[in-house]
Design a protein around this nucleic acid. Structure first.
Length: 642
RNA sequence: GCCAACGUAGCUCAGUCGGCUAGAGCGGCUGAUUUGUAAUCAGCAGGUUGAGGGUUCAAGUCCCUCCGUUGGCUCCA
């Protein structure tokens, strides 16, 4: 058989050969560093024989492709350690896959509850296993044998997994006293990767189903290099420091009274200032992209929600209120309200596309355990719009939305990743219509040169959708914008328009939100900027600090001039030293501090200290005003005085 | 909702084996100081130890129930 190497060389063999042997033939050095191979685009064990023609590439521990291999091996090492610590007869193993940034393993341990304090001793045992450097060997078994094998060991979850595998044979990996059902591949031995850390413990249902028993999950991470691990741990620390739940109350943006309004943030003056800026930007752009703003009631008669289908499909997440024997629903979505607006008068094809936009405050009941600061709440404001159009306008409409998103996210310096979700098993409407709508979304994405991934079967029950995930400064992703085709609403509400030939036709409806939830987007921004908002968003844009009491009058004059120019300014004339007040405003992350004392007041000048610590002495107030005004109106992210 | 950990002053935290009147720093208030680029000094106030129940001569500490928070599971903006 022939094996083609990346440099184009072809090696011929009479009998099965392992990537390890091939590596050795090329050079000892390569063999020493080899961690696995890629065989016909598939990850492969270093010591697993190949007996077919293929293309082969040896990969080293530090190659990006190897990440999943060594993390997976690390999850086995952890499982082995847990087995040793708690006893082989007590531990039943669930699954132990790699995930983004790490791995986990689920265990069912008889009579033991693992706490975070137990992690160090598991880590110790893992270090032992690494030091012992066990060879990791792959072997196969027929399914029936494998089930018997696991039965003897009392591994009930593994038996269930084996039963679900369609192949006749299943593969196992053995390292010392530990054997696990596993697809692999793995490193050649346990001593090959050293840099890891166990991060947290949590509960997780077997196979993610809450009817199944709950297993104990341990999360961990591993890297090929120490620096990479350190960097990742530092990133976690940094994320903790930026946590909007900490910064929000600290910067007086919002707080949550969990006693009377869990999941319903209360916004303070500074927080509302930021939200208003976000809404102003949104309104500007909605106007530019041809939307009309509307407003619909917070509570409406139950019959509207029966007609829309929410009663059947969404009732568990809705709040209700009652008066004089009539039940009203607090809106969880804005679509039914917009339906009423569309139906308010007959629509001509000339009026399409009709783009209705609303800052719609919605309430959705979420279970207590999922609430999380501003990111997961029970009430929020959507920048919601519904576009009604003819079928032939759909590609243009979706393209228009993509342009809108590019401009909106560009303001914050966010890049994004798009996913196209297709028809789920449980869906409404005909498959032909689904295929057509999905095709439309694809065309629009391709027309706009937006790369995307397909999420098979992840669409809403009423239509396919595109989700946009923004990537923040720490590389974390947040799902924000969503564009959904809806086949159900126009049917349920019998929407029509009069076409050019006089016939009544049904419009297509697109549902979309760009920030998603304004409050949630705010939360993301707090973490993205670590509370140091760009000047246009900052609650206080400039603080004027008189050097001493004598210069308070001059400070007030300066402030009132800035205020007259529309700049959000505060005078800090607190009876404290200048150093103290600088520190305080620095911690409030005010972009500019204006310091005025004897020099400045005598010559009608100001001195400016930027948030970045830059100090500019004795400049004209007008000069500063012009700079900051243009920085604000162009919504610059970086200070223009840097 | 489920699993685990946690809940002490506005914030961050201490409080030993159950044992005197629950402490500190920051913040707040009052006064002194009049300050030139990241914390001036002094004094004062501030607590139903998340709520309720139990064990005990005695509970912040031990037990039970509830509420909430955090990390996950499920769902999603």
């Amino acid at each position: 058989m022939k094996i083609k190497l990346p440099d184009g060389n072809i090696k011929e063999y009479d009998s099965a050969v392992t990537p390890g042997q091939i590596a050795k033939e090329i050079s000892e050095g390569l063999y020493r560093n080899a961690a696995g191979a890629i065989v016909n685009n598939q990850l492969w064990d270093l010591e697993r024989p190949i007996d077919f023609d293929c293309e082969l590439r040896i990969i080293k521990l530090t190659d990006p492709e190897t990440v999943d291999i060594y993390r997976h091996t690390m999850s086995h090492i952890m499982a082995q350690a847990v087995m040793r610590v708690y006893g082989a007869d007590k531990v039943k193993f669930g699954i132990g896959p790699t995930i983004e940034n790490g791995f986990y393993y689920d265990f069912d341990i008889e009579g033991v509850k693992i706490a975070e304090e137990d992690l160090p001793k598991i880590e110790e045992e893992m270090k032992n296993i690494i030091k012992e450097d066990h060879k990791i060997e792959r072997f196969e078994m027929k399914k029936a044998e494998a089930i018997e094998f696991m039965k003897q060991r009392g591994q009930i979850y593994k038996i269930e997994l084996i039963e679900d595998i369609p192949d006749e044979k299943v593969s196992f990996y053995k390292q010392g006293d530990f054997v696990d059902l596993c697809r692999g591949p793995h490193l050649p031995s346990t001593g090959r990767v050293k840099y890891f850390k166990l991060l947290s413990v949590s509960g997780a249902y077997w196979r993610g189903n809450e009817k199944n028993p709950m297993l104990q999950r341990i999360y961990g991470t591993a890297f090929a290099k120490k620096e990479e691990l350190d960097e990742y741990l530092k990133m976690i620390e940094e994320a903790k420091k930026r946590d909007h739940r900490k910064l929000g109350p600290q910067l007086e943006l919002f707080f949550i009274n969990t006693d009377v309004a869990a999941g319903m943030p209360i916004f303070l003056p500074y927080g509302i200032t930021v939200l208003n800026q976000l809404m102003t930007l949104s309104r500007e752009l909605h106007k530019k992209y041809g939307y009309t703003e509307v407003g619909t009631p917070l509570i409406m008669h139950e019959k509207l929600w029966r007609q829309s289908g929410h009663w059947d499909h969404y009732k568990n997440n809705m709040y209700f209120t009652e008066k004089e024997d009539v039940t009203y629903a607090v809106k969880p979505m804005n679509c039914p309200g917009h339906m009423l607006i569309y139906k308010n008068k007959p629509v001509s094809y000339r009026e399409l596309p009709m783009r209705l936009f609303e800052f719609g405050r919605v309430h959705r009941y979420e279970r207590g355990g999922v609430l999380h600061g501003l990111l997961r709440v029970r009430t929020f404001t959507q920048d919601d719009a519904h576009i009604f159009c003819r079928e032939d306008q759909m590609v243009d409409e979706v393209s228009n939305i993509v342009r809108f998103i590019n401009e909106l996210y560009g303001v914050f310096g966010f890049s994004y990743r798009a996913t196209l979700s297709t028809m789920p098993e449980d869906h409404m409407g005909e498959e032909v219509a689904w295929a057509k709508a999905t095709e439309t979304l694809k065309n629009a994405l391709e027309k706009m040169n937006v790369p995307y991934e397909i999420a098979e079967g992840e669409g809403a029950f009423y239509g396919p959708k595109i989700d946009f995930h923004v990537r923040d400064v720490l590389g974390r992703e947040w799902q924000c914008a969503t564009v959904q085709m809806d086949f159900q609403m126009p049917e349920r509400f019998e929407l029509t328009y009069k076409d050019s030939d006089g016939s009544e036709r049904r419009p297509v409806m697109i549902h979309r939100a760009l920030y998603g939830s304004i409050e949630r987007f705010f939360g993301i921004l707090i973490e993205h900027f670590a509370g140091a908002f760009p000047t246009w968003l900052a609650p206080v844009q400039a603080a004027v600090l008189p050097v001493s009491e004598k210069f308070i009058d001059y400070a007030r004059q300066v402030a009132s001039k800035l205020d007259a120019e529309g700049i959000r300014v505060e005078v800090d004339d607190k009876n404290e030293t200048l150093g103290y007040r600088i520190r305080e405003n620095q911690m409030k992350k005010v972009p500019y501090m204006i310091i005025v004392g004897e020099k400045e007041s005598e010559q009608s000048l100001i001195s400016v200290r930027t948030r970045e610590g830059k100090d500019i002495q004795g400049i004209q107030l007008d000069q500063f005003t012009q700079k900051i005004k243009s920085e604000i109106s162009t919504r610059l992210i970086k200070s223009s005085l840097e």
